[in-house]
């Protein structure tokens, strides 16, 4: 399991109901159901990954977040997880809205487009940045909605989501320094990881 997935898993309470959007090879839901007694399901766009997950006994569905989240009734899950996928969906705002409608909490991780290396690259070369976190050229990238950690905070504020916890993941470790303030995070964080909750109405 990737390091950011371990962090996500550590934030999920035992025996809860979880939907993992973009679950890939299913390692997170496998871990959650085996180690934490969760009822964890996955949604994945890549059919090969879906077939593999189901063949390993994991409950995974083929489909994409943009189309399928609308189908679930309110409060179906305790947690809805979106790993490194927010920037690739067609309607990120709607996806978030549905996540916090069908789930009591949302766990969202995304690559931070405000990282200093990206800013520097753009400033220095005038070309779209290419880094290990953003590895594909602009004409091929699936990341059609890049955002910064600031942007994400702002959207949470605007749409009324409470940020219960947030942290910064750089490579394979949690950056405590960058996690000190949103300002540092926005400049030095490679990935943001957020635990959100609906504000009580």
């Amino acid at each position: 399991m990737r390091f950011d997935q371990e962090l996500i898993a550590s934030m999920v309470a035992p025996n809860s109901r979880v939907l993992d959007i973009g679950c890939g090879d299913g390692s997170l839901i496998g871990h959650l159901s085996q180690e934490k007694g969760c009822d964890a399901q996955g949604l994945e766009l890549d059919m090969k990954a879906v077939t593999q997950s189901v063949a390993h006994g994991l409950p995974v569905m083929h489909g994409d977040a943009d189309a399928m989240l609308a189908d679930y009734p309110d409060d179906t899950f305790d947690y809805v997880v979106l790993q490194r996928t927010l920037q690739a969906v067609e309607h990120p705002r709607d996806v978030l809205r549905h996540m916090l409608r069908i789930g009591r909490s949302a766990l969202v991780s995304f690559p931070n487009f405000g990282h200093w290396r990206l800013r520097w690259h753009l400033l220095r070369t005038g070309r779209m940045p290419m880094t290990s976190v953003w590895p594909t050229p602009w004409y091929e990238t699936a990341n059609i909605h890049p955002c910064t950690i600031y942007d994400f905070f702002a959207l949470c504020e605007e749409d009324g989501y409470e940020v219960c916890r947030w942290m910064v993941v750089n490579g394979n470790r949690q950056s405590r320094l960058a996690g000190c303030s949103p300002h540092l995070a926005n400049l030095f964080g490679e990935q943001g990881l957020f635990l959100l909750r609906r504000r009580t109405r």
């Binding site: 399901q41 059919m47 077939t51 189901v54 409950p59 569905m61 083929h62 399928m68 679930y72």
Partner: peptide, 15 residues
């Protein structure tokens, strides 16, 4: 699959 999801059911789906 959509109908089962709408009912809050438990479903895997493979094509």
């Amino acid at each position: 699959v959509r109908a089962i999801n709408q009912a809050g059911g438990h479903v895997s789906f493979v094509e």
